[in-house]
Amino acid sequence: MKAIVSVREAVKNYILGNVVVPALRGVTLDVVEGDFLAIAGPSGSGKTTLLNLIGCVDTPTSGTVEVAGKDTRQLSERELTDLRLHTIGFIFQSFNLVSVLTVFQNIELPLLLQRKLNGPERAQRVAALLERVGLREYGAHRPSELSGGQRQRVAIARALVTRPQLVLADEPTANLDSVTGAHILDLMRELNRTEKTTFIFSTHDQSVMAHANAVVRLADGKLVDRVTPAQAAAETGLPA
């Protein structure tokens, strides 16, 4: 299968004043199309940093990150934005919906930014996704009127509305209770199967990892190994 993400020896250093904070110390990782991959690791291990690099919101200090065949270090700010707009969907830990827009408008927003579909086409697509995430009745509501789980479902719909090749989710269930979190993971998993969308999500929750095809484990900015969820669950001695 084709690799949609290819990370080679990626190093990311943050500069804090005159201190260099190494967040990633040479990570190499391939993600193939249709994957449903979990990135696990303790707090500060570099999960968010790695997702930022893959999500083209940041570029590596050294090494390369290729997304959909494009080397992100070769792209301009504008090209990176276009790559995010057309290829990647984002699900955030704190949902990050636009509070002043309705649920419908939030989901429609990426389509408006793309300027590819006309009004009726957009409406149809948004309505279908609302149905899909179980929020058919909630199009006219504001995010503040929804529960956390409902908001994250809106966020999922927003991430999928452009039919991206890749969806990234940084700890999508961290702000949800475990039952709601499990529902969200089930929904993502289902969309992964039916839409063939590649998902990469980070977590440090064992039960969340259980949904993944594979678990990539990070520790201290390095990739430790790539295991099955079962293995990850069995080896509780490892940092998790």
Binding site: G55, V57, E77, R78, T81, D82, R84, L85, H86, G89, F90, F92, S94, N96, V98, S99, L109, P110, L113, Q114, R158, A159
Partner: peptide
């Protein structure tokens, strides 16, 4: 700030 970052992340250009 977070909203702006979100919009930029999901593909809103600077001039937008």
């Amino acid at each position: 700030t977070r909203e702006i970052g979100t919009l930029r992340a999901i593909g809103m250009h600077r001039r937008e």
